[in-house]
């Protein structure tokens, strides 16, 4: 599995390296070959099975969006490549987002979703129901994201804000996006495995890791709030 970590110098604010690390460790430990490529802003987008987009502050987020608009990402996704995006990365995938005030900035339009500036920042722990599983994580963003009809949210918010207090992120045939930043795949081993299984087409053998205990603890702790 070839993983491309997109512009970590721009999109890497909140422990976002954790997602690349969890994907690579959970694959390697099952004997799946993994190649993680750091894509710098001066690099051409390499061929990859999965592109990772992290979080970032306003200026860097705008530059990342500009560079990605000019890149081959859209074409590659149309050809079957996968994307896992968090926070600012989620916003970039949509039609528009807001930085430095309330002016709309054009996104990649990979998915028909729009982000406006919320009245408050959403900061804290996030718990959402994703299919049969619960997802835990941390959010820290000022966006309100609206999905066009037909776009599926990734999860239903049980604690925290996500897109708008009701739903978090979105999911398509090849794209996952969530407001839970950084190490969301490290903290949610089942989600990480779901991504690996989908991208590689493998049926994964169960794997015990330290993350199981952390995941169980956070679900219990957040469910009781």
């Amino acid at each position: 599995m070839k993983i491309a970590l997109i512009y970590p110098e721009l999109l890497g604010t909140y422990g976002d390296y954790g997602n690349a690390l969890a994907l690579s460790q959970r694959s390697t430990r099952r004997g799946i070959d993994v190649d993680v490529m750091n894509v710098s802003i001066t690099d051409e987008l390499p061929d990859a099975d999965l592109y990772l987009l992290g979080g970032g502050e306003d200026g860097p987020q705008r530059l990342a969006a500009d560079l990605l608009k000019k890149s081959s990402l859209k074409q590659r996704v149309a050809n079957g490549a996968h994307v896992f995006a968090v926070c600012a990365g989620l916003q970039i995938l949509g039609t528009s987002f807001c930085v430095e005030g309330n002016d709309a900035y054009e996104g990649l339009s990979l998915v028909d979703v729009e982000t406006t500036r919320g009245s408050v920042r959403s900061v804290g722990e996030l718990l959402s129901q994703v299919g049969e599983n619960k997802m835990v994580g941390f959010e820290n963003h000022g966006g309100v994201t609206t999905l066009s009809p037909g776009i599926e949210p990734l999860g239903t918010v049980l604690h925290g804000r996500g897109n708008n207090g009701h739903f978090d992120g979105f999911v398509t045939e090849t794209i996952w996006a969530t407001y839970a930043h950084g190490p969301v795949l490290a903290m949610n081993p089942w989600l990480c495995d779901e991504v690996i299984a989908k991208v590689t087409g493998n049926n994964l053998t169960p794997l015990k890791t330290a993350a199981d205990q952390l995941y169980a603890e956070r679900v219990t702790s957040l469910s009781s709030r």
Binding site: G18, L21, A22, P183, A186, T209, A210, A211, Q213, L214
Partner: peptide, 17 residues
């Protein structure tokens, strides 16, 4: 400590909680 042990596990560092 569980956030830490998870991080260390993924870093392949020996740990004990």
């Amino acid at each position: 400590r569980l956030d830490l042990s998870t991080r260390l596990d993924y870093a392949n560092v020996t740990y004990e909680v």
